[in-house]
Design a protein around this nucleic acid. Structure first.
Lengths: 344, 344
DNA sequence: TTGTAGGCGTTATCAT
DNA sequence: ATGATAACGCCTACAA
């Protein structure tokens, strides 16, 4: 295919390819007039310097990767929104990879990215309690990594998280103060650090309020709604908790489905609160009390942090391992209300 | 930076770089043993052939771009999920670009992609009623384009849509049959083809049911919740519709907020139905009747179609302009129910 | 201010 | 089965 390139453009204009190349870089070492002429002709021909050739030459890609467990999820899609916003401002491109919570996919994505395809990576980990040494490649290849939300604690790198312990503590205490004596803690993956941290907040809040911790009330759930319904039906039948603390959004939703189905009244019979980025929590029946993470902002901060490292990096600085912690918001609504519910 | 490459690896193993290169391609013209040796050493060194160099040489990038108006939106995030799934299966990479419904950004993204960065593009358009000729570049550069959901009708290219006319017709008729005599049609951008198509279904359904069409009931809204609330408050106060057909999810949500706020009972005083990919529509107060598009599947089909073209394309075939139309599902729930509502 | 030339890392063709 | 070599398209010393 007789595709155009910098050389043909140069020939056509009776210039050398270096001059044409200069026209596209910001450089000052070119006559503004020739520059205009070149750019004008290039625009006519819809010519832009080839991406791969520039990247090969420059040893950088102007591209970052975002690796997340899932995307059809309010938290992650908002976070990606924030990341893309910052990247767009910096004229960077954003690659998306979904691990589907599968550690093997995570490893294979990271590995495949370790040879020049991206300048940096932002990741929320899949979370299996595995060997994380595969991430060392990135350090060796000088590809900066920023964790957000879900992190591996044994990896030394930059991260953006929320104060999960504190939020969980407060949410649990809120349930207790609303009269709950038997609060179930719903978690998807106990081994994931985020699950542990949130659980610790729950445990400590119970302790502080003199409620004995009962192991059976830690409910290990799944990512699939159907399975969770089965699990939760069983929980409501046998354990009869009067409070539910969902450590992730989908478990709050599953609780709602099961309560509706079993005719268990929220909040009269059981109070519910959950981590959630759902914008329409106020419109649920009943409106859902939430701990809401600043998802969009977390994405922005993660991206900003990555670019900061990327810029330092050129001057051969050490990687930054800063840990940015943002605040979540605890929003009390009807689902955890002490009052009998006036149905709106 | 003394980064490793195919040449150093070759030297180290006392081989030529061509042999090493061959080890990485599937090719049969290499001794299986040397091949193993090379791959083994490469793995030790975490070496993978440089992406940009291969791409430059091969004139392809194994990457596709997805351009959408937004991502923090159930429909688009699910569609992207479907696209990424197919891309992952094909070992392709996925770049994400968000236009924020801004035509200029759309143009600038497409333009910046027209020089080798991607092998193909999947797009849901921002929709301004503008000059779409900027897309011609893609044809000239042989970069296939697949539209999904939101399309430009004047552009000849492959597309994946749903039967919006039919769904809107049915939804409107459903409202009428539930007793509505004054149905408002809520739309974000009247000029966007998708808005027009859906509106035509609405208009024709009214006609068929002998309800005079009233221009004032076409409500032009925005993408911002606050603005929509103001618009809708006014609508409910002055026009007092007894039915609302929201052509996009966010307008159904805004209607809910305003009705809650104004103490207008859904569905007793006004019935609501809307296009929506919200999974928890059944949990809203009241549960929301929806026209639900197969978002994930649309993403999958769009990606499959793109790859089909990509594969043909190598054999120098013409671009495919097939139009795949999938069915949406009309799900009746309480918000459009004829019966007085038993609050669950 | 412009031109020349070498190399970024890979692959494919052509030899051996 | 392996090796030498010439692109792929761009950028940047260095020279003029």
């Amino acid at each position: 295919m007789g595709n155009i390139n910098i050389i043909k453009l140069a020939e056509e204009l009776n210039l050398s390819k270096s001059t044409v190349s200069r026209a596209f870089r910001g450089g000052s070492d070119i006559n503004p007039q020739t520059r205009e002429k070149i750019l004008a002709r290039a625009k006519e021909l819809n010519f832009l310097p080839n991406h791969h050739a520039s990247n090969l030459r420059n040893q950088k890609s102007k591209t970052i990767a975002v690796i997340v467990p899932e995307i059809a999820n309010n938290f992650f899609s908002k976070a990606i929104n924030g990341i893309e916003k910052i990247a767009k401002d910096k004229s960077y491109h954003v690659l998306i990879y979904l691990t589907d919570d599968d550690f093997q996919k995570e490893v294979s994505f990271v590995t495949s990215l370790s040879n020049g395809r991206v300048d940096g990576i932002i990741m929320s980990v899949s979370g299996e309690d595995q060997d994380h040494s595969y991430l060392q490649v990135l350090k060796r290849k000088k590809i900066p990594l920023v964790f957000f939300d879900r992190t591996y604690e044994d990896i030394e790198t930059a991260r953006v998280t929320t104060n999960d312990y504190q939020s969980s503590f407060e949410a649990t205490e809120h349930l207790v103060k609303s009269g709950c004596k038997k609060v179930a803690y719903l978690v998807v993956n106990k081994n994931l650090s985020i699950g542990k941290t949130r659980m610790q907040g729950y445990i400590d809040a119970l302790k502080k309020n003199n409620i004995p911790f009962d192991d059976h009330l830690i409910i290990d759930c799944s990512n699939e709604l159907d399975k969770n319904k089965i699990i939760l039906r069983n929980v409501f039948e046998t354990l009869k908790p009067d409070g539910v603390f969902a450590s992730v959004e989908r478990l709050a939703i599953a609780s709602y489905y099961v309560c509706h189905e079993m005719n268990i009244s929220i909040p009269d019979e059981v109070k519910v609160i959950g981590f959630s980025s759902l914008e329409i929590s106020p419109l649920l029946n009943p409106s859902l009390s939430t701990i809401t993470q600043p998802a969009y902002k977390m994405g922005e901060r993660a991206a900003e942090l990555l670019f900061e490292i990327l810029e330092k990096h050129e001057e051969e600085k050490e990687f930054i391992t800063r840990n940015i912690v943002l605040d979540s918001e605890l929003i009390q609504r009807q689902s955890s209300s002490l009052e009998p519910v006036a149905i709106s």
